[in-house]
Structures are given as C-alpha cells and as structure tokens.
Design a protein around this nucleic acid. Structure first.
Lengths: 218, 218
DNA sequence: ACCTGAACACCGTTCAAGT
DNA sequence: ACCTGAACACCGTTCAAGT
C-alpha cells in the first residue's frame, strides 16, 4: 500500500534530492510562486524529471512542508523531557513561530485546502499530538488553565504565524508581544471567565477533517 | 491627482457595477482563483471591459476588499457611541471575524504583499484607527490592560480570522473560544506579567509599511 | 528505468477593429 | 468614449523520443 517501496536508481535519488533542495531555497527566497521551470533548472534537471518525482507542483511543496512538520514534531518531543513543563510549552510555541518566520513561504501552504491531503494531515495530527502532551504537562503544574485544549493553542499559534508573515519584518517585537498575550490568555486565573464550549479532541478533529481526495475548490 | 474624477458614461458605470457584483459572488462561492473570463461572462461583458475598468485582476480584488474595509470601519464607528465601551470593543472584534467568515475569499488577500497597495493601506489605517479609539475607551474603564495597543489587537484578530478560515467549518465553536482567549489575554489583571516592548503607533506603522509601488515578489 | 525538451492547455492581459 | 473577442505571453503538465 505504501508509495515508497523499491529504492530509486542512484541518479534518480540524487535528482530527487536536488529538486527538493533547489525548491526549498527558491521558495524560501521568493515565495511559492517561483516557476517549476526555474526550479528544474536550479536542480540541473529537465522539467519532465520534476514531474516524474512529484506528480504536481503542489506535491513538491507538500513534500517540503511535511519535512518541516516532522522537524517541528521532533523538537516538541525533545521538550517533553525538559525540567519546567510550562516553560517547555512556551518554548515550543515560540519555536514554531520562529520556524514559520524563517520558512514563511512554506507555512503559507497551511490553510484548510491543504488539510485535505493525507500527508499534510498526518503531520498536522502529529503536531497536535505533541502540543497536547506538552500542554497536559503544563496544566498539571496548575500554571495553565484547565479549560484550554491543544487545538485552541494550535489555532492561536497559527494566528500568530499568519500575523508574523504580515508584520514581523515591520516590527519584530510585535511577535514577542503576541506570544506574551497568548501566555496571558492561557495562564490559570481564578478570576477569568471560562471559555465557551470545549476544545475538540484530536480524534474528533481527525473525523471532521475533510476526506482525502475531497474536491479542491477551483 | 485623484483617479476618479469625471463620471463614467452610463453604460460604463453599469458595467463596472456588474463586474464588481459578479466578482464578489463568485469570489465568495469559489475563492479568489475564479478566472477573469468567467467573471466577465457572469457580468455579461467582454474580458476587455473588465480590464478597462480594473487594470488587473488584483485591482478588481482590491476594489472589493477596500469596500469591505470601509464597511467594517463604519460599524466600528457606530460602536464608538455604545453604552459599555469594553463590550463595544469585543463586539467589534467578533464582528470583524464574522465578516471574514462570510467573505473568507476576500480577506485571504490581506497579507503583507497587499499592504504595498495604497488603497488597501488606507483601509488598513482606518481600521487601526477605529480599533484604537474603541480600545482606548475600553482601557479608560480599567477593564482592559493598559499595555496593549491597537496593533496588538489587530494582529490577534487577523490571526483568529486566519484560523477561522482553516477550522471554523469543522467546529464553529472554536471561534468563540478563540475570542474568549483574546479577551482573557487583554483583560486587566494585576498578576499578569507586562508585555515585552511596546505596540507601534499608527504613525510608526504607516512609516514602516512598504512603500507603494515597492517590488512585489515574483 | 529514467531523462529530456518540445508541445499542449490554461489563464491573465493586450489590442486592432468595431459601435 | 467605450465595447469586443481574437491573439499573445506565461506557466503547469504531458509525452514521444532518446539513453
């Protein structure tokens, strides 16, 4: 069932890597709308080779985004064993925003139409997973309010990332303030009114996410 | 200096309106990537007429976004005279997010590359303006923390709007929670640690925004 | 088994010809 | 003064021919 069984021929493997690296740097420098022709040229292959390795430009982008997601999950897992759980949680959040600022072109891709892809959805679920464990640890200390969930946090985080894209280059301090405001919002406080409704669990979210192969709008 | 002096011929004026309306509904239904050909057809005019009224597809989108921004500013101004200042502030915020959910395709456009356009920038400045006045009134009651600025709020708001695009259709309640978290974050609380740095003023922001005609990436 | 570049389809934009 | 649709340019994707 898996898509990656038999290893590629040596030159094909090398071409694939070159394409990924060329695309990565070009996307980072100039955004997602660099042409496939230019990417193929930068990688030193023909356009046809690009489409042999990645069925579409979107697939190429998704491959890179998935890589980034795995990296984020790993650093989240490392923080699970940090001394101060609450500090670890906020370090993870700050780090995610930092990654986004570096690779803004890549995270541009993370809106709901991308969540229809199962590779992206897998990465998404993993991120919610670590975030949930980091959050639960922080809540156990009593420093973080109990009625907030991983999905609430992820959304605030995505929001800050979106904002970072628009304003960080104008005033970098604004991101620190945004992180402080998130912290203020989720810090335990007996005087605070409870949040309406409740945060969806990872399982509920998975069920509600658009099915793979759902019609892309267009 | 202004671009809109002499009134258009009657049929031209009518075509322009038809184009705006056709584009608006198509964008709302199917996102910003509906083709100009289809828009022109829906408006009952030739493609050439579209480009006579709007120099580019981007200009057409911007015209619609600018209209939306003016509407948002007006409802903000109406709330300036509401009885409870803090309530008025949060009503405005909730309303902005609601508008975005209705016209998600339009607000998609509001990232930093659009802020290089002076028409969009003008609307942006006006929104920051009302938000600032609503915020100042709420702060005067002592219910909202003093160290938060209009730009801080706008960014949280934009973040929630971005999140709404991705998740609201999966679980609408999540937006209410997000608004509650914003409220928790900016509510006055002696125990809360102060925000790092300070929020840029509207004037500072204007100066730092990319100049009109700056190179779009591409 | 994989590579290549010419050819195709699609979409934003222009412009010569019309009224 | 404005409208139109054929023509152009650009970019993602395919495929016949090559190794």
């Amino acid at each position: 069932m898996s898509a990656t069984q038999r290893p590629l021929r040596a030159d094909a493997e090398r071409n694939r890597r070159r394409l990924l690296e060329a695309a990565q740097t070009l996307f980072r420098e100039r955004g997602l709308d660099v042409g496939v022709a230019e990417i193929a040229d930068a990688a030193g292959v023909g356009r046809g080779t690009l489409f042999r390795n990645f069925a579409s430009k979107e697939d190429l982008i998704a491959a890179i985004v998935a890589e980034r997601m795995r990296a984020a999950v790993q650093s989240g897992e490392a923080l699970l064993h940090a001394g101060d759980p609450t500090d670890a949680l906020f370090r993870f959040i700050a780090e995610m925003v930092g990654r986004q600022q570096l690779d803004r072109a890549l995270f541009e891709a993370l809106d709901d139409s991308w969540l229809t892809r199962k590779d992206i959805r897998a990465g998404h679920a993993e991120i919610v997973g670590v975030l949930d464990r980091l959050l639960t640890r922080a809540q156990a200390t009593g420093e973080v309010r109990q009625d907030v969930g991983a999905m609430d946090l992820l959304i605030m985080l995505k929001g800050t990332c979106a904002a970072a894209t628009s304003y960080a280059h104008i005033d970098p301090e604004i991101i620190d303030r945004q992180l402080d405001l998130i912290r203020a919002g989720i810090t335990a406080n007996p005087a605070a009114r409870p949040l309406r409704g409740r945060s969806p669990t990872l399982q509920e979210l998975e069920q509600k996410l658009p099915a793979d192969g759902a019609v892309q709008r267009r």
